[in-house]
Nucleic acid binder design. Sequence first.
DNA 1: CTGAAAGCGCTTACAG
DNA 2: CTGAAAGCGCTTACAG
Lengths: 338, 338
Amino acid sequence: MGASLKDVAQLAGVSVKTVSNVVNNRPHVTPAMRERVQRAVDALDYRPNLTARHLRKGRTGIIALAVPELGNPYFAELAGAVVDAAARFDYTVLLDHTAGRREQEVLVTQGFRAHVIDGLILSPIELETADLLGRRDDAPLVLLGEREYDAPYDQIAIDNVAAARTAVRHLTGLGRQRIAFLGARRELARQPAHLRLRGWREELTAAGLPHDDSLVAATDGYGRWDGAAAMNALLNQGAQPDAVFAYNDLMALGAMRALGERGLRVPQDVSVVGFDDIEDGRFGAVTLTTVSPDKQAIARLAVERVVARLTGDPQVEPERIQPGYRLVARESTAPPPA
Amino acid sequence: MGASLKDVAQLAGVSVKTVSNVVNNRPHVTPAMRERVQRAVDALDYRPNLTARHLRKGRTGIIALAVPELGNPYFAELAGAVVDAAARFDYTVLLDHTAGRREQEVLVTQGFRAHVIDGLILSPIELETADLLGRRDDAPLVLLGEREYDAPYDQIAIDNVAAARTAVRHLTGLGRQRIAFLGARRELARQPAHLRLRGWREELTAAGLPHDDSLVAATDGYGRWDGAAAMNALLNQGAQPDAVFAYNDLMALGAMRALGERGLRVPQDVSVVGFDDIEDGRFGAVTLTTVSPDKQAIARLAVERVVARLTGDPQVEPERIQPGYRLVARESTAPPPA
DNA sequence: CTGAAAGCGCTTACAG
DNA sequence: CTGAAAGCGCTTACAG
C-alpha cells in the first residue's frame, strides 16, 4: 500500500490540509512550507489516491467511449482521436464495444457503469429513440454518427445525405450511370445506412438517372467480408454496375476484391467510392476514393460537449452538430478512358 | 444525484448493512426482506457508487491497456480481444496510447494513474529494462510483445525468432534467394524488430544463403507509409529482391503498393510476407501471406495474468509465456511459375 | 440474521 | 495562512 496524505502530513509535521494544498498546487503556501512538504512527499513516494479524490468531488475524470467494433479502422482511428482530445481536458477514456447490438447499446446508455464514468460518447447502430427516452442515468451522453433520434441529446454527425450526394455526384460527373449502393440493411427497421442511401437516391434523381433497386445490395454487417459478399450477390443477380458507392471503406475494399476476382477492373470497368477515409484505402493496389469525415473535429466536438455538460449550464439545448467532410478522389475513380 | 444506500435503507426501514447484503447478493437474507429492499431499490432507481465501493475495497475493477497506436489494426484488434477477455473477469479496460515513445511508456509504467487502475497491460516499443527496474508502482504489470527485458515481470509474446524463421523458410521453400527485410530500426539502440531480424538472418544461414545487408531497410515507424518508403529506398539503391519479409502487415501492404507502382508484380516478381494477420491483408487485390499470432490467446493470457497477480500469491515467479502462431499462406506468396 | 459504527483517503467549509 | 473535523458512499468486523 502506498503512503496517504496523513502519512505525509505526519512526516512533514503539518496538517493534512497543508499537504493537500501543496499537492494540488494551491496558492498561499509559503515556499519554505511547500519545500518541506515536497520533501516528505518524495521521501514516501506519495501519490494521491484518485478514487478517494473522486469520491469526494463526485467526478472520476473518466469518459467512456462505446463503439460498435474496434476492429473497424474507422472506429479505431476515431478512438485514438478521442483519447487525444480527452487528454487535453485531463480526461481519460474507458473503452467499450457494443458489437452494434441493441442490448449492449442500451446497457451502456443506462449507466451500468454509473458513478465510474463522468460521461459517455456512444456511436450507436441499433439503438432506438425509445431506448433513449427511457434513459434514467444522468451522466452526459453524446451520440455519434448517422442514426437520427428524437431525444434530447447532443449528437455529432456529418451531413450524411449531402456527403452521400457528393460521392454520387462525383460518379455521375465521370459519366457513370449504373451506380450500385452497397450496405442497405436487410431488416428495414434498423437502417443505419438510411441517410447515405437517401443521398444516393436524391442525387441520382437530380442527375436525371433512375434509381434502380436491383443495384442496391443489403447486408447484415459492414466489414470487408460483407462488402465482398454484397458485390458478389449483385453480380450473381446479373446486375452490371459501372460504379459502386459503398456504405463505408471497408465494404468498398471488400467489393474491389470481389470485382478483381471476376476480372472487372477498377476504375476502368467499375468506379468505386467508399466512406470514412480509413488508412487502408490509401495503400491498396488501387487507392480508394472516399468521403472523408473530419475525425479530429468529431472527436474534439464530442469531448468538448461532454465536458461542457459536466461543467456548464445543463439547461443548454441539446444540439445536432455537423462537422465537415470532403471527398478525396483517388485511383478507384480515375476518369475512364474517353 | 442518485440515491445512496442510506436512502434505500431509510425507505425500506432497514439498516444499510441489510441493503448492502441484498445489493451484493449475499446469502442469509430472508426472501421477504430481500423483496422489501428490492422494492426500495427499484423505487429510488438506486445504483451502487462504484467509486466508493472501490475506495473501500482498494480495487477499481479497471485494467489499463497501453498500446503504441490504435490506428494500427493489430493493436485495435488486440484491444478488442482484451476488452472481451477482461469482461469475462468483470474488469473493464481503460485505453491509453503511448505513440511508442519511451517517455509515455515510462509514465504509464510508473503508475501516473495510481489507484485508479488495478493493473496494467503494456505493449512497449522503446521502454528499457532500466525503466522497469526503477518502477515503484505496485500494480501488476504484464508486458506484451517482442521486446526482451531483464526485469521481474510477466511477458506474453510469441516466439518471434521462430516465427520469423517460419516466414523466411516459406520464402526459401519457394525458391526465393534474395529476401529483403523491411523494418529494422535506424537507431540500433532501440530495436524492436531485433528478434524478427535475427530470425531472418538465422534462417537464411540455415538455408545456405548469404544475408545481404543491402537487403535490409531501416525505418522509424511501422505503418503503411513506412513500408512503402522502405521498399522504395531499397529499390532506389539498386537492390533486386525476389521476396520481402516485412516487420508487420502494415509495412508489407505499403511495400506491395510501392512494388506495384514500379510495375513489379506480387507474387510473380516478388513474394511478400507480413506479420500480424490483420484483416486488411485478407482483402487486398493480392491477399497477404502472414505470420498470424493467436491474438485471442495473447489477450486472454495477459488478462488472466493480471487477475492472477491481483488475487493470488504475489510470490509466483514472473513468467515469459509464448502463445501460438501460424503461417497463413495467401496470394502474395503463391508459387511462382516454374 | 440484523444494526450501529468505524474507516477507506481525500476535500472543504469552518475556526482560529 | 494553517489546523481540526466532517463527510463523500460504501464495506466490514463487531455486537447483539
